[in-house]
Design a binder for these strands. Structure first.
Ligand SMILES: [Mn+2]
Ligand SMILES: [Mn+2]
Ligand SMILES: [Zn+2]
Ligand SMILES: [Zn+2]
Lengths: 143, 143
DNA sequence: CAGTTAGATAACAATTCCTGTAAGTTAAGC
DNA sequence: GCTTAACTTACAGGAATTGTTATCTAACTG
């Protein structure tokens, strides 16, 4: 995702309006590696601007997604995780606490023989590893 | 997933009751490669037994899942897909029509160097390919 | 720099997918 | 056949997300 300043310029170029609500969301997403949900972003926004609605947060996140600035990830944790990290990477999902981590993989074997694809045209491949994050693993060992 | 007859025996062994509703669901799942939703199973069930509730379908599917006979897959299509195919495989998801296909992969490179895992303990890896199924690709070319 | 207006916001209702509750029904064991 | 735990159904409820609409405001206009 671009910097908040670049996003402000980009929004204006696209005929979108720049509001304080949106600028706040831009800042909260910048360099954010927590894979936040719309709810968690909203919780941070209202600390600064108490009247902002969850709908506004969803709308801004979806606009950023449509612009290719962030990705919405359905990782099976119950709600969509938003990811401003646009480099090619995959995810580690803790089945206990639902923390999401990044993992950078070179997966040559995902260059698939077309015969196994039966005419399916692959756009992208997502690899999701499920297991225990280091914190949950440590706690699990203590019990 | 086992055959309907084997499931009947297994349910009785486990102290679960075998009802006509459940037997109907067993038959609908047997050799089913469509990755049905609870709703789509329910739609088939009510053709045969009109009074069966969606709750009963969900309950039976979850029991089969708990018993390891089927898997519930969250592939980002909006509702859980149930899969009686218990062999190790991955999925092709059509971003247009939400059809789900199977793909069998040998992924040696998913034997990961522990350094990239940062202490994360991997239970399993799921690979999801998103793109266009052959039908949607053909239609797309016509437009 | 006030006026105009397309677009954004906030409040609230609605939707989708799924789960909880409670009252009636039935399979399985005796 | 009787008992009873398990199952089924109808219906309400919940979580995440989206639709509606009246109000508001950023950005343009003169
Ligand atoms: Mn990520
Ligand atoms: Mn499958
Ligand atoms: Zn964890
Ligand atoms: Zn398709």
């Amino acid at each position: 995702m671009r910097s908040p300043d670049e996003l402000v310029a980009l929004f204006r170029e696209n005929g979108r309006k720049v509001t304080p609500q949106r600028e706040c969301i831009f800042h909260l997403l910048h360099n954010n590696r927590t894979h936040p949900t719309a709810e968690s972003i909203h919780a941070e926004v209202v600390k600064r601007m108490p009247s902002v609605s969850l709908k506004t947060v969803y709308q801004t996140l979806h606009e950023l997604e449509d612009m290719g600035e962030i990705s919405g990830l359905d990782l099976g944790t119950g709600s969509v995780r938003f990811d401003p990290n646009q480099s090619v990477h995959h995810h580690l999902v803790c089945t206990n606490c639902h923390t999401v981590g990044d993992i950078y993989l070179e997966i040559d074997s995902l260059q698939l023989a077309s015969k196994v694809l039966q005419g399916f045209e692959v756009g992208n491949a997502e690899v999701t590893f499920r297991g225990l994050c280091s914190d949950c693993k440590r706690l699990g060992n203590l019990i």
